[in-house]
Design a protein around this nucleic acid. Structure first.
Length: 587
RNA sequence: GCCCUGGUAGCUCAGUUGGAUGAGAGCGUCUCCCUCCUAAGGAGAAGGCCAGAGGUUCAAUUCCUCUCCAGGGCACCA
């Protein structure tokens, strides 16, 4: 509908431009907005006020000229009037609303799809947690948000590629492998001081136990030997990272390449399988799992750094190779090759982004935890230095989620292994509630996730509120069958929908395509959540109004109301599906 | 110190690509509503100097600057 009006206004203004009412070199960007007050009609256009200056005409007079150019016999426009400082208010006809019902019932699950994306490709990378432990509730938010955003973009006409980047090549993975080995040694009967900065979680024991079952004591070394060259002073000096590095080196030395890789791969494999299964059960699936190690295998990192070097964007200092990112807006330069010859994490990140660019996506979206925001300028700098347009990359930051049980805040600390996993969260509150709560808030807002509320089965809980509206409608249709009545849709009957409650529903329904476009454009699935709550509320209000029993004896009225609620149900289902929540028939 | 993100009703949060006499929702509080398709629901009331101060213009909660408050980030870690 909005689209339709937009076309009419564009045409009207083009005609005025042709008549030299205002200069031709002015770009006319028509903005049609929903009015806040129904007395101002359905849509308002402020073009007259915006263009008044350029046209040297008073806003209200210009509005007059614009209206003259609008068709007078459009079946969707009831009237057009000028108001306030020069707003052009458009009032829609009932036919316009009835058409919405027809359209929804015809298009069904495809209703609300838009051409905003025009087939452009988008790669969206999200979660990408290090495979060093199970996903926690913070990752859950990124997962829910990323998946919903991907669905939203698909519906808005983009071709979407969802990707998980597996950080399986860095030092963290070595820490994991070493942690597993140390636990394994303990299972062999060794007594040792497990490093405080190793991975403490129980899952490390599980992996070690798995290996111990398969391999027995084959890789046992005595604890004193393992810690032989590792001076206690290091620990005393509290330099835990140095201790860790020494232990990693020691385990590689004692185990040899093949055996070390066994521990490394086992940990990776088990954890990755856990993550993958966890996400799948959360309803989050990917098109591709992209492994970081693939980059080093293919020398992509080296090539990317070479490319920077060739472009003259690097220099050597203190034995390290630096990327001059400050020349592209970063606050300081960054090391890409360390003194010891190893690439930094940033270096492989540059390579990964180069790889993304080379795959030719029109848009690249990264969803990161807000704590990574400091990386945004350097990654964009790298893209620019590599000769690409940094605007192709959009980095969306998601704030962390704090868990509450009622008033009590639950502690979260990843390193110590003291955290609530996504799996535990799902088991406690269920997938639907988890996804709803995650997406309910704007992503850059801190999220307080109340487990009690998410579990409650009352109207306090917005998940149930929306789902219940859907189930209630199913229930009406079940009742219809029980009474051996049938429903057929006929637009002619819709004029029987004349109460305020019914009109309110028609109005809310008509906004759906606009909400989809707006939410997709702003990358804000929470807009859709708010809309669905709104629609559910309008429905419950309608449903509970005692004058509005749906299955009335009057066949025409009954069919009209059934058409109306069938439409509501379709939109609820479409919206819930985008967010990744089920639409139950019974509750 | 520098850089991000927020600061809207008692609580949790929408809204703002600047708009039209009174700024919205849910929860909580207070009043009501099941002989009726699920009350996992509905109707109504109270509740606000949109953190503060300046500026930009026809118009600012929305844009700019400064201040205050909260959270996060500032590694040859990932």
């Amino acid at each position: 509908m909005k689209q339709h009006l937009h076309t009419l206004f564009t045409r009207a203004l083009a005609q005025l431009q042709a008549q030299r009412v205002f200069p031709e070199n002015i770009t006319v960007d028509i903005r049609l907005e929903r009015t806040r007050d129904t007395r101002h009609g359905d849509f308002a256009c402020n073009a007259a006020m915006v263009l008044a200056k350029a046209a040297h005409i008073r806003p209200r007079d210009l509005a007059e000229r614009i209206i003259e150019q609008l068709p007078t016999n459009d079946e969707f426009i009831a009237k057009v009037e000028i108001a306030g400082p020069g707003f052009i208010n458009v009032f829609l006809t009932q036919t316009a609303y009835y058409t919405v019902i027809n359209d929804i019932l015809t298009a069904q699950q495809a209703y609300g799809h838009s051409q905003l994306g025009a087939g452009q490709t988008v790669m969206i990378e999200f979660v990408s947690a290090n495979p060093t432990g199970p996903l926690h509730v913070g990752h859950g938010r990124g997962a829910a948000y990323g998946a919903a955003l991907a669905n939203l973009l698909i519906v808005a006409g983009f071709k979407v590629h969802k990707e998980y980047y597996i950080n399986d090549a860095g030092r963290q993975m070595d820490i994991l492998a070493t942690s597993v080995w140390l636990r394994y040694l303990e299972l062999c009967g060794e007594t040792l001081a497990f490093p405080l900065n190793g991975y403490q979680g129980d899952y490390v024991w599980d992996i070690a136990a798995n290996l111990h079952r398969e391999q027995g004591d084959a890789f046992r070394h005595s604890a004193p030997v393992v810690f032989e060259n590792i001076s206690p002073e290091i620990v005393k000096a509290d330099d835990l990272e140095k201790l860790m590095d020494a232990l990693i080196e020691r385990s590689q030395q004692l185990l040899g390449f093949t055996a070390y890789r066994l521990f490394f791969e086992k940990g990776l494999e088990i954890i990755l399988e856990d993550i993958r299964g966890d996400l799948e059960q959360f309803g989050v699936v990917y098109d591709e799992w992209f492994s970081e190690s693939r980059l080093s295998t293919n020398n992509t990192v080296a090539k990317a750094i070479e490319q920077l070097k060739a472009g003259g964007h690097t220099y050597e200092q203190n034995g390290a190779l630096w990327f001059r990112s400050s020349a592209f807006g970063d606050e300081k330069d960054r090391v890409v090759v360390r003194e010891n010859g190893q690439f930094t994490y940033f270096a492989s990140d540059i390579a990964y982004h180069l790889n993304k660019l080379e795959r030719g996506f029109d848009h690249i979206i990264n969803i990161w935890g807000a704590d990574h925001h400091g990386y945004v300028p350097r990654v964009k700098a790298a893209i620019t230095a590599l000769g690409a347009d940094a605007n192709r990359l959009t980095i969306l930051l998601v704030q962390f989620a704090s868990l509450f049980r009622g008033k009590e805040r639950l502690p979260m600390s990843t390193r110590s292994g003291e955290f609530v996993t996504l799996r535990e969260l799902r088991e406690e509150v269920g997938r639907d509630a988890a996804r709803f709560f995650y997406i309910q808030r704007k992503s850059e807002q801190h999220l307080n996730f109340d487990l009690e509320l998410a579990k409650s089965q009352t109207k306090d809980n917005p998940v149930y509120y929306v789902q219940y509206a859907h189930a209630r409608i199913s229930s009406v249709f079940r009742r219809l069958r029980e009474k051996n009545q049938t429903w057929y849709h006929n637009q002619a009957t819709l004029k029987r929908l004349e109460t305020d409650r019914e009109q309110a529903l028609l109005f809310t329904l008509s906004r759906y395509p606009e909400v989809i476009e707006s939410a997709a454009h702003a990358y804000e699935p929470h807009q859709l959540i708010y809309y669905l709550r709104n629609l559910a509320q309008d429905f419950h209000t309608f449903y509970d109004d005692d004058r509005h029993i749906i299955l009335v004896d009057d066949e025409q009225l009954r069919n009209a109301r059934l058409s109306l609620i069938a439409t509501v149900q379709q939109i609820l289902r479409n919206g819930l599906t985008i967010i990744g929540i089920s639409a139950p028939e019974v509750m």
